[in-house]
C-alpha cells in the first residue's frame, strides 16, 4: 500500500505536466512561440544526453553542438540524397552518434583531466568547418528542403502538428532517460563524478563507464540533430557552433543538474528567453549574460534546487541523490 502511494507521488507530476502540455497550442495561438517550444523540445533531447556525461559523470563536454550538427547532416543527407522517408533519417544519426562516442570518447576519456573538454571544443569547430566547406554535402549553402515526417500517411508540416509529435518523442525519451538515471549505470555515472578513485574498487571499469555515458550523450545529441533537420527543413553548418554547445550546458545547469525536472525547466526557459527579453533590443545579450551569471553564482544547483530543498525540509526524508 505504502509502495503504491509512493509510486503515485512519483508518477503524478509527469502525467499532469504532459496533460497540461497538450493544451498549450490551444491557448497560445502564436505559431512562432509554438515553433520555439518545438525547438526547446528538440534541444531537450540533446540536453538529456549531455546530462549523462556532464551532469552525472561530471565530465565537461563542449561538443554537443558538433554532435547535434553531424546528426542533422547525416539525417538530412541520407533522406534527401537517397530519397528515403524522413523518419529513416534517424538511423544514420544514431550510427553517427555511436561512432562519435567511441572514436572521440575512447582517447579523451581514458585519461584524467580536461582532455574531453578540449577535444570536444576542437571537434565542434572541425565538424563545423568541414560542413561549411565541403561542397559535396552542400558547402556554405547547407542542405535544403529536407522533407517532413509522415505519420500514418499524414504529413507533419504545421508547428502544431510537430508540437504534438514532439510531445510523444519527449515522453519516450523522458522514460528512457529516467530508467537509465535510476539504473545501476546511472549510479555508476554519478559515482564517477563523486569519487572516481573509488569506482574501480567497486568492480566498475572507470574508463568504460565514462565512455558509455559519453556515447549515450552523443547518440541523444545526434538524434536531436536529426529531428531538428526535419523541424526547420534545412541544415546549415552556421547553426552548429561552440556557442550552441555552451547553450546546451547553460540549459543543463540553469534548471538543475541531473534532475529531469530541472533539465526541462532550464531548456524551456533558456530557449524562450530571447523572446521574453526581446523588448530590451540591443541590451538583450548583456542582460541575458547577466541573468545566467547571477544564477550560476547564487543558485548553482539550478532553479529546481529551490523546490527540492523545500521538499527535503518538509519530508526530512529520502532525497534521491539529486535525481528527481
Amino acid at each position: 500500500m505504502n509502495r503504491i502511494l509512493q509510486n503515485r507521488n512519483r508518477f503524478a507530476p509527469p502525467v499532469v505536466i504532459v496533460i497540461a502540455a497538450l493544451f498549450v497550442p490551444l491557448i497560445i495561438t502564436n505559431s512562432y512561440i509554438i515553433h520555439l517550444l518545438n525547438t526547446a523540445m528538440v534541444y531537450l533531447i540533446a540536453v538529456y544526453g549531455l546530462n549523462f556525461i556532464s551532469g552525472m559523470a561530471g565530465q565537461t563536454n563542449l561538443g554537443q553542438a558538433g554532435v547535434f550538427g553531424i546528426g542533422a547532416y547525416a539525417s538530412a543527407l541520407f533522406v534527401t540524397r537517397l530519397d528515403m522517408p524522413a523518419w529513416l533519417g534517424i538511423l544514420p544519426a544514431i550510427l553517427a552518434g555511436l561512432l562519435i562516442g567511441v572514436i572521440l570518447g575512447y582517447p579523451s576519456l581514458r585519461v584524467k583531466g580536461l582532455f574531453l573538454t578540449l577535444t570536444t571544443i576542437a571537434f565542434t569547430e572541425i565538424a563545423r568547418l568541414v560542413e561549411n566547406n565541403w561542397q559535396l554535402i552542400g558547402g556554405a549553402l547547407g542542405v535544403k528542403s529536407v522533407p517532413n515526417f509522415f505519420l500514418f500517411g499524414i504529413e507533419i508540416k504545421t508547428p502544431n502538428q510537430f508540437y504534438y509529435l514532439m510531445i510523444v518523442v519527449v515522453v519516450l525519451f523522458s522514460i528512457i532517460t529516467y530508467r537509465i538515471i535510476h539504473s545501476k549505470w546511472g549510479r555508476a555515472f554519478i559515482a564517477v563524478r563523486d569519487n572516481s578513485d573509488a569506482v574501480p574498487s567497486c568492480g566498475i571499469n572507470l574508463a568504460q563507464a565514462k565512455i558509455t555515458a559519453f556515447t549515450w550523450s552523443s547518440v541523444y545529441g545526434a538524434i536531436a540533430g536529426a529531428i531538428y533537420s526535419q523541424c526547420i527543413n534545412y541544415v546549415n553548418a552556421s547553426s552548429f557552433t561552440t556557442d550552441l554547445s555552451i547553450l546546451f550546458v547553460v540549459m543543463m545547469m540553469f534548471g538543475g543538474l541531473s534532475s529531469m525536472y530541472g533539465l526541462i525547466i532550464g531548456t524551456v526557459i533558456i530557449t524562450l528567453l530571447p523572446e521574453l527579453l526581446r523588448f530590451l533590443g540591443d541590451y538583450y545579450q548583456l542582460i541575458y549574460a547577466l541573468i545566467v551569471m547571477l544564477f550560476a553564482i547564487f543558485l548553482p544547483g539550478g532553479i529546481w534546487s529551490i523546490v527540492k530543498n523545500r521538499q527535503g525540509k518538509n519530508k526530512g526524508g529520502p532525497n534521491h541523490s539529486g535525481v528527481a
Partner: peptide
C-alpha cells in the same frame, strides 16, 4: 572515498554493481 551526493543505500548498491548481472548493458 564515498559518493558524496548519494544516499547510504545507493553507495552500498554501487558496491554490488557487478553482482549477478542479468543485463550486461544498458
Amino acid at each position: 572515498k564515498l559518493f558524496a551526493t548519494m544516499t547510504v543505500l545507493e553507495n552500498i548498491m554501487v558496491g554490488g554493481h557487478t553482482l549477478n548481472p542479468r543485463s550486461t548493458n544498458i
